[in-house]
Design a binder for these strands. Structure first.
Lengths: 218, 218
DNA sequence: AGGCTAGTGACAGTCGCTGACAGTTGACAA
DNA sequence: TTGTCAACTGTCAGCGACTGTCACTAGCCT
């Protein structure tokens, strides 16, 4: 099944594989570039394919559709976050684990992204998603799916049954809600640095307690 | 501009208007019936139009698309909930107002729905939305938009600036997150009665506090 | 009764997406 | 090196969602 160098650190992917990777990257970049400059709906799949000089059919062999390309990097980031959650030490309280996972994972996420596309392009894409109904919808659905997954992780950490105890899902729902708000505000604001989103997230998470309080008047 | 009976309680819509209403209702029912029996993706717009004996073009004059029909009743419910929130007395704490608004509005929502389609059909539609990716995505986006609106209402109640104080958005995000979880579980469960969703909602809202606690172990 | 206009159907066209088939090119063994 | 196999690709054909156009029908109003 596998060649001898499977164990080695640099398996040298082979020409075929490298070519595939190049086409995939080229399609991704071309798509995001076109989306962010002329708009998502205004960009046709043919345009993207033409820009990379492949047939439309080939585009669909690499990506499930327009949506899929647009959210590709987002999914990358999400999987990093999910991994970060799984690696939190078990003694941390659920919300604390989630909080630290986000705050810490942003750096690794940034690196992972830059290995594929320029970070600046990703920023523009992020704002595009927020402002394009079709993309926002798809993104929210993905988020919902991931929340379900995370709820499972949390439940396991605490040795609970997700379907019996409401707390895992509730905690994750609360957390997810706050994350969406911060993401939205970050995209709308001026400062698109990693520091900015980190500070914003921390601040908003700190406001969950006060927001649930009976009296808002100081 | 308006005829004399504008002031009257029963303006008698006129034949034209009544005909339109009938077509709209017929399209809505036919669509939901087809969606829930053979599936959303498996149902074409032509089928729906044929079932009501109008042209495809006419369908698109009444609804923006397939998604729009499927979520029509949901939007009806949402607007009722929003109205209920606006009518809560100002002395209630934000989360308390939201809580009471949901719990109380379900009855009025039920009535409003039944004026358009049989309630049983709506239940099936609800489950369809939860289990159809494309519809779930659209629904989540709508919810997000409404959360933004509600955040504005809450901010106004408390005399705050939504963009300056994080609490309105955070509170609504938390609430919305819990609502989604309960909705999901309700659709997945057996008991589709109004009582069931009411009890489930109350229970899950009560678990927000415990879910945020440091220690989950009793 | 007759003109006005909202609502409709028929038609054509765009775009996202998929299946089928044939041609090309890297991978791997004889 | 060469030949075989499998992976990738392009071309073509087609479906379904959706939109613009235009002529026509049918309520409405005077």
């Amino acid at each position: 099944m596998e060649t001898a160098d499977t164990i080695g650190a640099a398996p040298r992917p082979g020409l075929r594989e490298r070519k595939k990777q190049r086409t995939r990257d080229a399609l991704l970049r071309a798509a995001l570039e076109l989306f962010t400059t002329q708009g998502y709906e205004q960009t046709t799949v043919d345009e993207i394919a033409d820009a990379v000089d492949v047939s439309q059919r080939t585009f669909f062999r690499y990506f499930a559709g327009k949506e899929d390309v647009a959210l590709f990097v987002q999914r990358l980031a999400e999987s990093h976050f999910l991994a970060a959650v799984r690696e939190r030490p078990p003694h941390e309280a659920p919300l604390e684990a989630l909080r630290r996972a986000v705050l810490e994972s942003w750096d690794t996420i940034g690196e992972a992204i830059e290995a594929v596309i320029p970070i600046e392009l990703h920023m523009r894409t992020f704002q595009l998603i927020e402002s394009t109904p079709a993309l926002l919808a798809a993104h929210l659905r993905r988020s919902a799916e991931m929340e379900e997954e995370i709820a499972g992780v949390i439940a396991e950490r605490e040795g609970l049954d997700v379907d019996a105890d409401p707390r895992p899902r509730v905690a994750v729902a609360v957390f997810g809600g706050v994350m969406r708000v911060t993401g939205r505000l970050w995209g709308a604001g001026e400062d698109t640095s990693v520091e900015a989103i980190r500070a914003l997230t921390a601040s908003y998470l700190d406001h969950v307690g006060p927001a649930l309080a009976e009296k808002w008047r100081t």
